Simulated assay, not measured.
Amino acid sequence: MSQTRVDWIRGITVRQPWATCLLTGEKTIENRPSPGWPLGLYLLHAGLAVEGAALRLPLVATTIRGRQLERGAVIGVARLADVHAGDGRCTPWAEPGRFHLVFADVQELALPIPAGALGPWKPSEDLVDQVRLQLPDLHAPEGTS
């Protein structure tokens, strides 16, 4: 198995239930304390932690209803389209005083792929190959390798 990292796609780890909310496409904003996130494709990785209080929020509950909350796995791919400082008014998911990572073009994996990571990270070629088995049209943007 190759441990070579690829440069055209990154990973982001998100706690549950927020990861599943992003996966549905209803939540387009991920709130983060810093703006240092390059635009482009990201593997959506559901972390091991679950924020229990978030499960009781009506917006979250209706968004994840009937869905499995996978943990410790890559569950999809999305494009980070924008990062901006937020006042909390751009969507119901936005928190004031945080940087808003705006995701688009979410693609859900039929089978979650177990993986472990924290923060922004670069996936191995093997992990990207596993994702490509489920999303065969996933490829590096023109001009990258």
Rank of each mutant, 00 (worst) to 15 (best):
L44F: 08
P120D: 00
N31Q: 07
V77R: 03
W8I: 05
W37G: 01
G52P: 05
D126P: 01
D82C: 12
R56N: 13
L135S: 04
V77T: 01
V102L: 00
A115Q: 14
A78D: 06
H139G: 03
T4H: 13
R15F: 12
Q130H: 09
D7P: 02
T62N: 08
L80F: 04
N31R: 04
E142S: 15
V77M: 07
G143S: 14
R56I: 05
S2N: 13
T24W: 10
D87H: 02
A61N: 10
S124Q: 07
R67G: 06
I64P: 00
A94D: 14
V60W: 02
T13V: 02
R32F: 00
V106Y: 06
D129I: 04
A110M: 05
P58H: 02
K122A: 08
G97N: 11
E142C: 11
P136N: 07
H84T: 12
L57Y: 00
T24R: 11
D126E: 07
K27M: 10
T4A: 15
R79H: 01
A49F: 09
A46T: 02
E70M: 02
K27E: 06
L111F: 10
V131R: 06
D87S: 04
E30H: 04
R132L: 06
W18N: 05
G11S: 02
W37K: 03
R79A: 02
V74D: 09
A115F: 11
E108I: 07
P38D: 00
Q134R: 13
H84F: 13
L80G: 12
L44I: 09
P120W: 08
P112C: 15
F103T: 04
G76F: 01
G66P: 13
G40R: 05
G143F: 11
M1C: 09
T144W: 15
E95R: 15
L23M: 09
V14K: 06
P33K: 12
T13M: 14
A94T: 15
T4E: 15
D82P: 09
P141T: 05
I75V: 06
D82R: 12
S34W: 15
T4Y: 12
P33V: 10
L118I: 11
I75N: 05
R98K: 14
G116H: 11
A73H: 01
D87M: 04
A78N: 02
L41V: 12
G47H: 01
V83S: 12
V14Y: 09
P58R: 09
L118S: 05
T13K: 10
H100S: 08
G119P: 00
N31Y: 03
P33C: 10
A61T: 11
E95W: 15
S124I: 00
Q16I: 07
P112T: 15
A85K: 13
S2K: 11
I113R: 11
S145E: 10
A53R: 15
K27H: 01
V14S: 09
A104M: 11
L80H: 10
L59S: 08
D87W: 01
S2W: 04
R132F: 04
W37I: 02
L48G: 14
A61P: 13
S34P: 05
D82V: 08
D7L: 00
A54E: 09
S124V: 03
G97A: 14
Q130T: 10
D137H: 03
